[in-house]
């Protein structure tokens, strides 16, 4: 039995790769070929779909928009979560436990519940259709997540580190940025990865809060699919391109992922 153990993960990976392969396969076909023939690989290999995406600004700006608000969100979430996580890991204060659970409840809130009020709220403060509106709205679930992961990493650092630094005459600011932040660098990397991931894959809020200027690529896809019939080839190419940023990010953090999950905090 032990000999065939590798079969399970292998079959699972094949199952995972099949739909992805099918998407990539279609992205190299023309739409007419997709609709008229069933084939396991492109009969007439074409790059036409990708050329269209990289030359049409409504398409490629979608990518720029998505990446812009995702990066904004990651920076805001981690910057705000760092001091808060430090407070939760080091100090007891009035209402700390309730505050922590309240933060987590926001990770549990269904975005569908918030879609309409967000639309009205961000419109009323004139932020509708800006990158920053999407970045701020994604803070709803990313900040609690960031606090949760960072708190796990910070609690693993012994408190003696802080105390020694103060004895050595470090001010709090210098200690925090010169000693503490480098110590938990791996944790910050993992936190950034998860913030990036959840902001990148979310669509409901991003779509609700944008019209043209900050429209995410994923929303561009749904619109094009419904107005000009099903341009399947184009849709497949756009979909394939959305996989790439995630794949790049995951390559960089692969050594840390297992460690991050081991903290039991995701």
């Amino acid at each position: 039995m032990k000999k065939y153990k590798w079969l399970v993960p292998t079959l699972y990976i094949i199952f995972l790769m099949l739909p992805i392969y099918w998407l990539i396969n279609m992205s190299f076909k023309t739409t007419t070929e997709i609709i008229n023939t069933y084939s396991l690989w492109p009969q007439k290999f074409t790059l036409e779909n990708y050329v269209k995406i990289f030359t049409d600004s409504t398409w490629y700006m979608g990518y720029v928009n998505s990446i812009t608000y995702t990066v904004f969100n990651t920076v805001i979430s981690v910057a705000a979560a760092l001091p808060a996580a430090y407070a939760f890991s080091r100090y007891k204060f009035l209402g700390d436990k309730h505050l922590f659970f309240w933060l987590l409840t926001n990770r549990m809130a269904p975005p569908a519940v918030f879609a309409l009020p967000f639309f009205q709220f961000y419109s009323s403060v004139n932020l509708f259709d800006t990158h920053i509106a999407v970045a701020l709205s994604h803070c709803l679930f990313n900040i609690p997540l960031a606090v949760w992961i960072l708190e796990g990493f910070m609690s693993a650092v012994p408190k003696e580190l802080d105390e020694t630094a103060y004895v050595d005459g470090y001010s709090f600011g210098r200690f925090f940025f010169k000693i503490f932040v480098p110590t938990i660098a791996a944790g910050i990397g993992i936190t950034m990865f998860f913030c990036f991931m959840f902001s990148w894959v979310e669509l409901l809020l991003a779509k609700t809060l944008t019209a043209t200027e900050a429209k995410p690529i994923a929303a561009t896809m749904t619109r094009t699919a419904s107005t000009s019939g099903y341009e399947l080839g184009l849709l497949a190419a756009a979909g394939t391109l959305t996989i790439i940023p995630g794949a790049i990010v995951i390559y960089f953090v692969k050594d840390y992922i297992a460690k991050g999950f081991a903290m039991g905090r995701v």
Binding site: I20, L23, L203, M221, G246, A247, A258
Partner: peptide
């Protein structure tokens, strides 16, 4: 780890669209 994490990083509507055509 890399191959298994792939589905987690695909935007959700792309997941839907991908399975639709699949």
């Amino acid at each position: 780890l890399i191959l298994m994490s792939m589905p987690l990083l695909i935007p959700w509507n792309v997941v839907g669209a991908m399975w639709n055509i699949f």
